[in-house]
Design a protein around this nucleic acid. Structure first.
Length: 211
DNA sequence: CTTTGGATCGTCT
DNA sequence: GACGATCCAAAGG
């Protein structure tokens, strides 16, 4: 796999943009928690009050509060009674834009990831989904609202100089009902760690010629 | 390989 | 009281 260069913080200016602009630029950045690190290979943009699929569509609540906060922080939520998923909050501030981290390529701390995810059958199964990524990385409720740019922070978003892809895969978001056609998911083409739902590209769900 | 149903509980109406 | 920005094992081709 690709080598890992020297890690430096992602720029605050980048994260302050709209999620539609930020999302594809987060591809190939590096998420770090303690000894564990992954390269982000699949993301989705959510657009707050302007997006019926967003948790923030109907305004602020206790759960989505961190999405209304400053860019560069984490929005971590609990779903299906058992799973955690993580977003990077972006701008404009107060508008609840965020980028869901859907998949990562494991870089460091693979042993800790395997221990945290005994169900994983392979390395590519460790972080190939939003809830898998959080489970492998040990991200959950305690990390909601954390500043990813804080040098002493528990969870950080860094870059090793690996640029985002020039021609990323683009397609509809996974697992939503409203706004299911908006092409707001991006992934690194050919990456084995892209999620299962994400592998199927931007194809329409079904277009069978009736009968 | 694909499809299906169960798990499991916080959040909001 | 209903429903998830999901995952997994089991069953079927």
């Amino acid at each position: 796999m690709s080598p890992v260069g020297r890690l430096v913080p992602v720029s605050a200016e980048l994260l302050a943009g709209d999620s539609l602009d930020v999302a594809p630029r987060l591809l190939n950045t590096v998420l770090v928690h303690g000894e564990r690190a992954v390269r982000i290979v699949e993301v989705e943009a959510y657009r707050g009050e302007d997006d019926p699929a967003s948790h923030a569509y109907r305004g602020p609540t206790r759960r989505n509060a961190s999405m209304f906060g400053a860019p560069g922080h984490l929005y971590v939520y609990f779903t299906y009674g058992m799973h955690w998923c993580a977003n990077v909050v972006c701008g404009p501030e107060g508008r609840a834009r965020a980028v869901l981290l859907r998949a990562g390529a494991p870089l460091f701390g693979l042993d800790a990831m395997r221990a945290a995810r005994p169900a994983a059958r392979s390395t590519a199964d460790l972080c190939s989904g939003p809830a898998k990524l959080c489970q492998a990385m040990g991200i959950e409720r305690a990390h909601d609202g954390l500043d990813l740019l804080e040098p002493a922070g528990a969870v950080r978003l860094l870059s090793d100089g690996h640029a985002p892809p020039d021609d990323p895969g683009v397609g509809p978001r996974v697992g939503i009902r409203a706004a299911a056609d908006a092409p707001w998911r991006w992934w690194v083409r050919g990456e084995p760690n892209v999620s299962r739902g994400g592998r199927m590209g931007g194809r329409p769900p079904r277009d069978a010629p009736g009968r």
